[in-house]
Computed example of a mutant assay.
Amino acid sequence: MDFLRGLTDKWDLLMAGGLGAFISSLWHRDDLVDKRTWFIFLLTGMTCALYLTGIVSKYLGITEPNNVAGVGFLLGTFGGSLMAAVNRAIKAADLWKFITSKFGGGAP
């Protein structure tokens, strides 16, 4: 129950992050091929906004609530994009080659 109460206390950050991720998704249509990837993109943006806005706002010294919501919007925008880029990089990387080069293995 405390989890739900915590979410309702940060409803403005969830909305700002969700709106930022939604607007950002319009520019990432090539990466978001189906509803599942689009939903994950939005969820990632909202999660980044929810959990990182406090840290970033405190680091930057932003205390006004409207500006904190703006930080949440930007984190939602860039959070979904960042995770999409990380996912593309992981898919493009040859992880097995990397592991064998770091730890050895393969032909003697």
Rank of each mutant, 00 (worst) to 15 (best):
L14T: 02
L75D: 01
T8L: 07
G76E: 01
D2K: 15
D2E: 13
L52R: 02
V33Y: 13
G80M: 02
D2C: 13
K10L: 11
I23Y: 06
I90M: 07
T53G: 00
L32H: 08
L60V: 03
P108K: 13
Y59V: 00
M83W: 09
L26G: 09
I23P: 01
I90H: 03
L7R: 03
S101R: 06
W96S: 12
K10Q: 12
F3I: 10
R36T: 10
L19K: 04
G72V: 00
I23G: 02
L75N: 04
L52D: 03
G76C: 02
D12P: 00
A49P: 02
D31K: 12
L95M: 09
C48R: 08
M83L: 12
L19V: 10
L60W: 07
L42G: 10
K58Q: 13
L4G: 09
I23V: 14
L95Y: 06
G76M: 02
K10P: 00
A69G: 08
M1S: 13
I23A: 08
L75E: 02
L74T: 01
D30W: 12
G20I: 07
A21T: 06
G6M: 08
L32I: 11
F98R: 14
D94T: 04
P65D: 04
T53C: 00
D12F: 07
G18Y: 04
F22E: 08
G76W: 00
T53N: 00
N87I: 05
R36Q: 12
S57P: 06
M15K: 11
G18E: 01
P108Y: 14
L4F: 15
W11P: 03
G6R: 13
F22Q: 05
L32R: 08
T77E: 00
H28P: 11
R5L: 14
G45C: 09
L14G: 03
T47A: 13
L13Q: 04
W96A: 11
G20E: 01
L26A: 11
G18T: 08
A84C: 02
F41A: 10
V33S: 15
D94V: 00
W11E: 03
A21H: 09
E64F: 10
D9C: 11
S24F: 07
L50E: 05
G45F: 03
I62L: 09
G54A: 06
V56D: 03
G70M: 05
I55L: 14
S25G: 14
M15E: 05
T47P: 07
M1I: 06
G20S: 07
Y51I: 01
L75R: 05
K58D: 14
D94A: 05
I99N: 00
N87Y: 09
S57K: 04
G18I: 04
D30G: 14
K35T: 15
K91M: 06
